[in-house]
Design a protein around this nucleic acid. Structure first.
Length: 258
DNA sequence: ATGACATTTGCAAAATGA
């Protein structure tokens, strides 16, 4: 099965891209981030016409996550929102289940600028994710934590460490929090399949970043041991980043044995 | 330090992004 994570940067602005992705790639599970729409504005009719259905957690203006599957194999909703802070109003986490596989679509806070409450919120969110991920691992089932993690794990994962040195995505605290989650026992699928060199998933709209391949690797699919046992391949559908009115992220995927 | 560009929303100028 092909399981994909795709930060759309606005589902309505990206609807033609999304529909053609469904038709061309036929993902078995598609995790979306930054749908940037209220629940009632989610274009579910267009998606159903394309043969898909799903669950979504929207928010007017920004954030918002969803999980889509083909209509014939509908996923069961497990959880909306990350536990640990009842005052958190951001729509950044949704968890579903299909054929015994648990899949989370997550949109981790950006955290810029460093030194502000936004960075504190990012780190606190990562602590909550750490706790929740621990519980998921304890179930000893196949689990995929898929999404825009807004973390550049190592210096290999960004076009210029120097240019981005002050960015929240690659601060030592950010990377340490990410490593603590990884070290619980998660497999970073992209790096497992591509151990060396850049495997970018995001290219900024500005400064010709796409044209000069100045990207980041920030969209990650983290696999529990039972899911990692089924890993066949992982990659980035990079070509979609170059299309008309594209998102600044590219679809990032794993193939898992059925 | 700002803005490069793109999305959204009381539809103009601001918030957000990474």
């Amino acid at each position: 099965m092909k399981l994909v994570t795709y930060n759309l940067n606005g589902i309505r602005a990206r609807l033609p891209r999304l529909i053609e992705y469904l038709e061309e790639q036929k993902p078995d599970i598609l995790c979306l981030q930054e749908i940037k729409c209220a629940d009632e504005a989610f274009p579910i009719q267009d998606l159903r016409q394309a043969g898909y259905d799903g669950h979504w957690h929207g928010q007017k203006g920004f954030n918002g996550v969803a999980v889509l599957t083909p209509q014939a194999r509908s996923a069961k909703l497990r959880r909306v929102g990350l536990p640990g802070d009842p005052d958190d109003t951001h729509s950044r986490y949704l968890e579903a289940e299909l054929d015994g596989l648990i899949v989370a679509s997550l949109y981790l806070p950006n955290g810029n600028p460093v030194g502000t409450e936004k960075f504190d919120y990012k780190l606190a969110w990562m602590e909550r994710l750490l706790e929740h991920a621990r519980g998921l691992l304890a179930e000893e089932r196949p689990v995929v934590l898929a999404g825009d993690w807004n973390v550049v794990p190592t210096d290999e994962d960004v076009f210029s460490v120097r240019a981005m040195a002050h960015d929240a995505l690659l601060q030592p605290e950010t990377r340490a929090a990410f490593r603590r989650i990884v070290h619980q026992g998660w497999t970073d699928a992209l790096r497992a399949r591509h151990p060396d060199g850049p495997v970018y998933t995001f290219w900024d709209y500005t400064a010709g970043c796409w044209q000069r391949d100045a990207g980041f690797r920030i969209d990650h699919l983290m696999l529990s041991p039972a899911a990692a046992d089924r890993l066949l391949d992982a990659g980035v559908d990079k070509e979609y980043r170059g299309r008309e009115r594209a998102s600044d992220h590219a679809p990032t995927w794993v193939w898992l044995e059925d």
